[in-house]
Structure formats: C-alpha cells, structure tokens
Simulated scan of single mutants.
Amino acid sequence: MPHQPTRRAVLATLGGLAGGTALTACTGYTVRTGAAQSDGPTAAPSGSPVAPATPSTTVTAATGPVVVPGGPIRVVALGTPELDSAMTLGITPVGATRSPLDHGFPDYWPASRLAGIADVGETGAPDPALVRATEPQVVLGSQARDGARYEALRRIAPTVLSRTAGPPWKDNFQLHAQTLGRQEQAAAVVREYGRHTTRAAQVIRDVGAGGRRISVLRFVEGTPPGIRTYGRQSFIGSVIADVQLGRPDAQNIDQDELELPADQLARADADLILYATYGDPGRAGTTAVLQSPAWLALGAVKAHRAFPVDDQLWFQGVGYTGANLIIAELQRFLGG
C-alpha cells in the first residue's frame, strides 16, 4: 500500500515542531520555529558594536499602506488564518484569538507550541486590553472580522488586515509573510505545497481514486442550527481542487459557503462525504441529521464512505500547514 503521511510527519516536514530547525532531507529548506523563532538582534558583548536593527517596511493592507517594524517576532493573530501563517513561517504569536465555541486554539498544532500563546479574546471580538498586554510589534487580522476595531488596534501596534479571512488564503499568506519579513521562508513553503499536491494527486490516481467527488459539510451551532456546504472558492474547495479531486454538482460552483436546507440533503451525496461539527453536536443538528432517514439513504453513507473530520483543521485551519494536513487525511480516506 502507498505510504500514508501522518499528521506528525507533515508537521515535521513543514518545520512545525517546536524547537525544530527543520527539515533538509525532505524539503531542502530550513524554517526556524519555537525557541529559535527570534531573528532580531541580540545584545552584543561590552565594547562590541550592536547589530543594526532591521529597517521598517511598508505593506499594502486592506486599509492602505502600513509601516511595520523589520523582522517582528511579537505578533498577535486575530484569527486562525493569521495563526496558521505565523506558525508556518516559524513565529509563535504572543497572543491570538480563539473561535467563540472552541475551548482553545486549533489542536492540529502541537500543544508545546500553543502553550506560550496568550488568549486575547474571541475571534471577531478581541479584547484591546489583552492585546496591549502582550506588547505586540504587529497585529494580523482581516477587515471582514476586525475592520470595526481597526483604529483601536492600530493605536496598540501596526495592524495589517487582509480583506477577508478565507478564500484568498494564498494571497493572504503572502501579505503575512511580507509583514513578518519572512518572504524567503514563504517561498519555500509554497514550493513544498506544490510538490505535496503533485505527489498526492498521483498517489490518489494510482489507487484508482482519481476524480472522486468529495462532499464537505459543516454542522454549525447557532439559531437556528444549519448545514453549510462549500464551493470551489472556499479554502477547503481550493485544497480539494489542488489535488485534482471533483465535487458534487451542488458544491461545484464558484461560491465560498452556502446553506444546505435539511430537506435537500440528497444534494450533498458524493463518492465520499466528510463532515464536521462546530459547537455542540446536538445544538448544531449533527445528531439529528446523522440519525435521519435522508442521511441513511445517501449513497456514500450506505457505502460506509462518510466520515467525521476535525472542524478546527478542515474549516478553521486556513493556511498552508492546515492544507498540507488536510491533503494527508484525504489520501488516507481515499486509500492512498
């Protein structure tokens, strides 16, 4: 059977393990992480010249030009996409927000890396006092979620907002890399992702699963609870496309996310169904739907090809590390 990459192996390949200096054998590049995250000047011995500070730079954010310090390492991430970017680029943020219905940060990252990150409030509603307490050099967020708080945030530290947090994730990663002065590392990450998608697509074809249609569903706690599906413009849709897999007709559209009425569940059928729950399964409707005749009548369910996945990874892990881990899991589900 072809090799199935584990989550730990993928994280290692991306330089995601705390204290790592990362991989040369598999990737040919180095990304400093964890304890090695600081690239700033260190104190010089008495009488020695002090290394000059890295000059500041100007980045073009959704709000316009923003001057940021050179090589910042004290970073606050106001969402999971920004967290993924910083961590992927070898910087563990000093602070981050968490999704309102989650108890902590995305657990596809090793606990040892997450342990040092201060909770600065819920995503979409960061607490300015908690952000200020981390003494950030730069704040990363998105205009869609944080635009209303931009003026308050920029008084704490230079604040770089992308337009949205989801679909243009590859462009947002480049903005984050420029802000953090990590363009070289970003180029290596992008190259490795290209190699990974090419290898994965070939493995999937080799096991006879090429072109399989993948349906993705997310049960979301709210009022009322809802079922969401995701089109080609979504993060998860783009990752599936990158490994050359298909989608059911209802999801093979140029949209990000859309609601799926419970009485139209048949439109979610495909060769493989992957579903996650955000919040409590009872309140999100997961429990009721999975016990319903409509669900049990789906072809993928009857063929035992419907599987739960981790919501924090598949629907919140918007970034290159999240994408690489999702691809590894797709291979496992498809037998590759």
Rank of each mutant, 00 (worst) to 15 (best):
P2W: 10
A9L: 12
A9T: 08
V10R: 14
A12N: 10
G15W: 08
G16L: 13
G20Y: 03
T21V: 10
T27V: 12
T30V: 13
T30W: 03
G34F: 02
G34T: 09
Q37D: 15
G40L: 12
P41M: 07
A44N: 10
A44Q: 10
S46R: 09
G47D: 06
A53L: 15
T54A: 14
V59P: 01
A61P: 04
T63D: 11
G64V: 13
V66T: 06
P69L: 03
G70A: 04
P72E: 05
P72F: 04
V76K: 00
T80S: 15
P81Y: 05
L83F: 09
D84S: 04
D84T: 09
V94F: 09
S99R: 03
S99P: 02
P100D: 03
G104V: 12
P106G: 03
W109Y: 15
P110E: 15
S112K: 12
V120R: 00
P126F: 07
D127T: 05
D127F: 01
P128F: 13
A129F: 11
A133C: 12
P136W: 01
G141H: 04
Q143F: 10
R145V: 03
A148L: 11
R154V: 09
R154C: 02
I156D: 07
P158S: 07
P158E: 04
T159G: 02
S162C: 07
R163I: 05
T164A: 08
G166F: 10
P168T: 05
W169R: 03
Q174F: 04
Q183W: 02
E184L: 05
E192L: 11
E192D: 15
G210V: 00
R212Y: 13
R213Y: 01
R218L: 09
G226S: 14
R228N: 12
Y230G: 06
F235M: 12
F235W: 07
G237P: 05
S238C: 05
L245M: 11
G246L: 02
D254T: 13
L260Q: 02
L260T: 07
P261H: 14
A266F: 09
I273Q: 03
P281M: 11
P281Q: 06
A288C: 08
L290G: 03
Q291C: 05
P293D: 08
A294E: 15
A294C: 08
L296Y: 05
H304D: 15
F307E: 13
G319S: 07
N324P: 02
A328N: 09
L330N: 02
